[in-house]
C-alpha cells in the first residue's frame, strides 16, 4: 500500500517550499453519515495539531441526493475544496458515488476505499421497456480494482453485521481509512469514542479494529480473483434472456361501461376516457403491456396481446 509521508505540525511554514496539504474526499448518499465520517477525521487532524478545513454542501443531504465532504489538512490550508485529480484518499460510503468522484483521485498515488453497498435511486428504475435493466452504474468491482492501483473495495455493512453492530459500518470504513493515513490508532479510537453514543463505544472500537485489520491483511491478488468470480456470476444474472417485445392493447368498446378503473390504475398513465366515456389508449408508446388494465377490467373489455410472451426465468 502506498503510504503518504505524514506531515509534521512543527514544520516551519515559510521555510523552503510549503508542504502540500493532504486531501481526503468522503462521498456517499444523503443519510449515510458522510458528514459524520468527515467530522471525525477533521477533529482528529485538529487534535494532532494540523490546520484543517472541511467543506460540504447542505440542503439536499436528507433527500437521497449525492453528498460529499472535502477534508484538507496540513501546515497551511487555503482552499477548502480539493482540486480534481488531487485527492490522496477517496472514501466512498456507496459504490456508485465512489465512481462519480474517481476523477478527483490522484491517479498515481491516490487510495480508493469504497463500500460495495449499492443504493439504487428511484430514477434508475424508470425504464419500463420489457427486458430493461436498472440504470445503476455498470462498472464492476473487479474492473475498478484493476483500473485503480490502490483500491480497497469492502462490504463494510457485512463486516459490521458479522460483529453484531450493523450500524457501525461507517466506523469499519474509518478503520480502513486509518491505514491510509499515518495517525496513531489510539488517537483514532479516542476521537471516535467522542462522536458515537457512549453505550456503543466498545462496539464501534471493535468495528474500527475490524476495518483496520481488514486493510492490513488485504491481499490484492486474492481479492481480485474473488471479485472476478463475483463479476462472472453477476453478469450471468443480468444477461437475462428478455428482449424488447412490443405489445398491443385491444379494447372492446361495446363492453366498456366507462367505470374508469383502467385509467386510474394504469401505471404508465397512457389510458384515458374519451368523450363517450370509453377507455382509449392515448399513448401507445408508453404502454409496457403490464396487463393491469386487462386484469382489473370488470367487464373483460381489455386484452393485452404480446406476440411471444417471454417465458419466466
Amino acid at each position: 500500500m502506498n503510504r503518504r509521508v505524514p506531515l509534521k505540525a512543527d514544520t516551519p511554514a515559510a521555510s523552503s517550499a510549503p508542504e502540500r496539504p493532504t486531501n481526503v474526499l468522503i462521498v456517499g448518499v444523503g443519510g449515510q453519515g458522510v458528514i459524520m465520517v468527515s467530522k471525525v477525521l477533521a477533529s482528529l487532524c485538529q487534535e494532532l495539531g494540523y490546520q484543517v478545513k472541511q467543506s460540504e454542501v447542505h440542503g439536499m443531504a436528507k433527500r437521497g441526493g449525492a453528498v460529499f465532504s472535502h477534508v484538507r489538512f496540513g501546515h497551511t490550508v487555503y482552499s477548502p475544496t480539493i482540486l480534481e485529480g488531487d485527492a490522496d484518499v477517496l472514501v466512498a460510503l456507496e459504490w456508485a458515488e465512489g465512481l462519480r468522484w474517481l476523477p478527483y483521485l490522484n491517479q498515481d498515488s491516490g487510495t480508493f476505499i469504497a463500500d460495495t453497498q449499492h443504493i439504487v435511486p428511484p430514477f434508475a428504475c424508470r425504464n419500463r421497456i420489457r427486458g430493461a435493466d436498472s440504470g445503476y452504474s455498470r462498472e464492476t468491482v473487479h474492473e475498478v480494482m484493476e483500473s485503480v492501483a490502490n483500491s480497497f473495495a469492502l462490504d463494510a455493512l457485512q463486516i459490521a453485521t458479522e460483529l453484531g453492530v450493523p450500524k457501525a459500518a461507517n466506523t469499519v470504513l474509518l478503520g480502513t481509512l486509518s491505514t491510509a493515513l499515518e495517525f496513531p490508532v489510539d488517537a483514532w479510537k479516542g476521537v471516535i469514542s467522542k462522536f458515537v453514543p457512549p453505550k456503543t463505544v466498545e462496539a464501534n472500537t471493535r468495528a474500527f479494529e475490524a476495518g483496520h485489520e481488514w486493510a492490513l491483511t488485504f491481499d490484492r491478488e486474492t481479492r481480485l480473483k474473488e471479485w472476478q468470480e463475483h463479476t462472472a456470476r453477476f453478469s450471468a444474472e443480468i444477461a437475462r434472456s428478455d428482449v424488447a417485445v412490443t405489445s398491443t392493447l385491444e379494447i372492446t368498446e361495446a363492453w366498456c361501461k366507462g367505470c374508469d378503473i383502467c385509467v386510474k390504475f394504469c401505471p404508465e398513465r397512457c389510458l384515458a376516457m374519451d368523450e363517450r366515456q370509453i377507455a382509449v389508449l392515448t399513448d401507445p408508446d408508453r404502454c409496457t403491456g403490464c396487463r393491469i388494465c386487462e386484469w382489473l377490467c370488470p367487464d373483460l373489455a381489455i386484452a393485452v396481446h404480446t406476440p411471444a410472451s417471454p417465458v419466466e426465468a
Binding site: C125, R128, R130, S134, P267, G289, C290
Partner: peptide, 26 residues
C-alpha cells in the same frame, strides 16, 4: 408482485427493483 410498476410511480427511495422478473419486468 406482477411487476406492474404502479408503486414505482411514487418515486419512493425505499422502493427499487429486485433481480426477480415477471413477464419481462422487474
Amino acid at each position: 408482485c406482477v411487476a406492474c410498476q404502479s408503486c414505482m410511480n411514487l418515486g419512493c427511495p425505499a422502493l427499487a427493483w429486485t433481480d426477480e422478473v415477471y413477464d419481462g419486468h422487474h
